[in-house]
Amino acid sequence: MTGGSDEWWEGNAAVQVPAQVEYEKATSVEHALTLLTRYGPESRILAGGHSLIPMMKLRLAQPEMLIDINGLTELCYITLAGNQLRIGALTRHAQLLDSAVVGQYFAILHDAERVIADPIVRNWGTVGGSLCQADPSEDLSAAFAALKGTMVIQGPGGAREVAAREFHTGPYQTVVRPAEILIEVRLPIRAGGGSSYRKVARRAGDWPVGAVGAAVWLERDVVADVGIGLTALGARNFAAAEAEDYLRGRPATADNLDRAGQIAAENCRPVADQRGPADYKRHLARVLTARVLSEALSRAGG
């Protein structure tokens, strides 16, 4: 759904049912890839459909062929593999929220999932769909940017890995090619880490006015590494790289966190919409960055 822009109506006739479309159920990842290749760029993967179907209802999206991957239970998992947490692309938001292992290592994901959409939407929307939709307001994109995850993309010729921060190429655009599927997200588990996510919304279930996620790794009282992700705040690659650079190697003092917030705010380019004017969003970038850093630190616990 078009969370970033609330002017979707402009110039569009309100047509609240999808246009004609073909439909096929994929029976395996290979089958899905075959179908994608066969039907070409006008075909679309249908995961939870909670972004795609609303866009089709408004006829902002008019694919000719839908390839339903909901039957691919093999893409629906959360597993520990060595020092990595692996999340299948078809994992539903609700499953991420319910997962104890996710909560244990990545509190940021539980923080985020608690405020993504609403419980019913979370039952059906998927992690992969969220990332591939690439809406600038999508919460998980920033969370994974903060965690410096890796996306695994499968194509006819095999799988490739892309860093979370290289996954999005712009609003509603990713590096996933027409005949490819995102199949997995990998998150590195590192000792000494803590993370947190905070979103300001006008109401429960609304898209963020702005949100920030952070992950910090401490060595003694010094920030050994840090990831900061910004949602809906006009940050390049959903990340506050300048603020991270500032903080890395510095002691985790309140002043330094505030300064990091300030730097994050200075380096993002939020746009005004009905959720708020640009100056307010920039201010949020600052306040929320400092807050999530502080909470992430309190969770880091060595």
Partner: peptide, 29 residues
């Protein structure tokens, strides 16, 4: 509603509540 916000359409699909305005009948096949 048109935008999957109101939940007047909630039904169970298998074991979970979903907004049936945001699911194709085909997906329930």
């Amino acid at each position: 509603c048109d935008t999957s916000n109101c939940g007047a359409c909630v039904v169970w699909l298998d074991e979970t509540p979903v907004k049936s305005c945001t699911v194709l009948a085909a997906m329930a096949d």
